[in-house]
């Protein structure tokens, strides 16, 4: 009798932790710094156990100093180390705006390519648990204008681990957005080592009638909506971009040419949340393949309220997507 090997399941949080542990063990130039990342294990427990295993010189607690966290990371990166910096919340990227846009993203270019800036900025994002207007946003699209940095937004434990390992090994700076609402999400993560190349979108579901182009936590709501739509006879394709830079334009064009009906969905507000850029690329590259106007199903454009009751209305639901699927399929 043969048994099928079962792939073990890990949470999104543990998958990130495992990627960090493996890269710390693999390369002595890698170190972690951030607020409460040491023995405490991070505000969300993501770095738990790493301080005990690797010590206080590899996993460093810092003061509340976002400008130092990022600018200091750049200083370490241009002098031979590979820092992984944890911002306690993605929203705090504004506290280090110049350090991210002006230093992390531009140092190499503006100094004639004489340096590399191999650093990763981990940015816990998203509305989850009533963290309030300043601790709940998904600001990844803000970095679209920061040429020089890559933007990674994993949606599953498998992707989270494989993409983080690639990000740490990459010689370019990477902003890595991990959704707080997914830390407990479990998924298959093989025991064996693997990496996922940056800049490759992933078809999370194959379909023929409608494409949902999305990333981050919205991938799961898109999959849920696709499942519901299937019962109604509508075949939905879900393309998880996984990275906004490098952006997999070929994958976007391929799905648009296949279905001709496109919904773009992200948790950030519709204006400036990144979907407009995807729609513009579709207009430039393959507008004649469209059978219906592009629809955007995105977060509403208010600050995220502190109340968890109201917070749930900010992020689009599978039902919102389902209505859009029905609508666009009939167009």
């Amino acid at each position: 009798m043969t048994t099928t090997p079962t792939v073990r399941k890990l949470s999104y949080s543990r998958a990130i932790n495992e990627a960090l542990a493996e890269e710390l063990a693999r390369d002595e130039r890698v170190f972690i710094m951030g607020q409460d990342v040491g023995a405490f294990g991070g505000a969300f427990g993501v770095t738990r156990g790493l301080h005990a295993r690797f010590g206080g010189e590899r996993v460093i607690d810092t003061p509340i100093s976002e400008m130092f966290l990022v600018g200091g990371g750049v200083g370490a990166a241009i002098t031979g180390l590979r820092p992984v910096v944890e911002m306690q919340y993605a929203d705090f990227l504004w506290n280090a705006g110049d350090e991210i846009v002006g230093k992390m993203s531009k140092w190499r270019y503006m100094h004639g390519g004489l340096f590399t800036v191999p650093m990763v900025l981990r940015l816990p994002e998203g509305a989850a648990g009533g963290a309030g207007p300043e601790h709940s946003t998904c600001p990844e699209a803000a970095l679209l204008a920061a040429a020089g940095s890559y933007i990674v937004i994993p949606s599953t434990p498998y992707d989270a681990k494989g993409l983080l390992k690639s990000a740490i090994r990459d010689d370019n700076p990477v902003a890595y957005f991990e959704h707080k609402g997914m830390y407990g999400l479990k998924g298959e993560v093989p025991e064996e080592e693997y990496t996922i190349p940056l800049g490759q979108a992933d078809l999370k579901r194959v379909g023929d009638d409608v494409s949902i182009i999305t990333w981050g936590r919205m991938v799961h709501r898109a999959l849920e909506a696709a499942e519901t739509a299937a019962a109604d006879g509508i075949s939905v394709e879900v393309l998880d971009l996984r990275c906004l830079r490098p952006l997999d334009v070929a994958a976007i064009v391929a799905t648009v040419e296949k279905t001709g009906r496109v919904i773009i969905s992200h948790e950030a507000g519709k204006t400036g949340g990144g979907g407009g850029e995807i729609a513009a690329i579709i207009a430039e590259e393959c507008i004649t393949s469209l059978e219906a106007p592009v629809r955007r199903i995105c977060g509403i454009e208010t600050p995220v309220p502190q109340s968890t009751h109201l917070e749930q209305y900010v992020v689009p639901t599978a039902e919102d997507l389902g209505a859009a699927i029905t609508d666009i399929a009939r167009y």
């Binding site: 170190f31 010189e57 460093i60 100093s65 400008m67 130092f68 990022v70 600018g71 200091g72 990371g73 750049v74 200083g75 370490a76 990166a77 241009i78 002098t79 031979g80 180390l81 820092p83 110049d98 350090e99 002006g102 230093k103």
Partner: peptide
């Protein structure tokens, strides 16, 4: 902008 970079370089030297 160099104030924080310098501290990071100092940390790098120490590490």
């Amino acid at each position: 902008g160099g104030h924080v970079l310098a501290a990071g370089v100092g940390l790098s030297i120490k590490l």
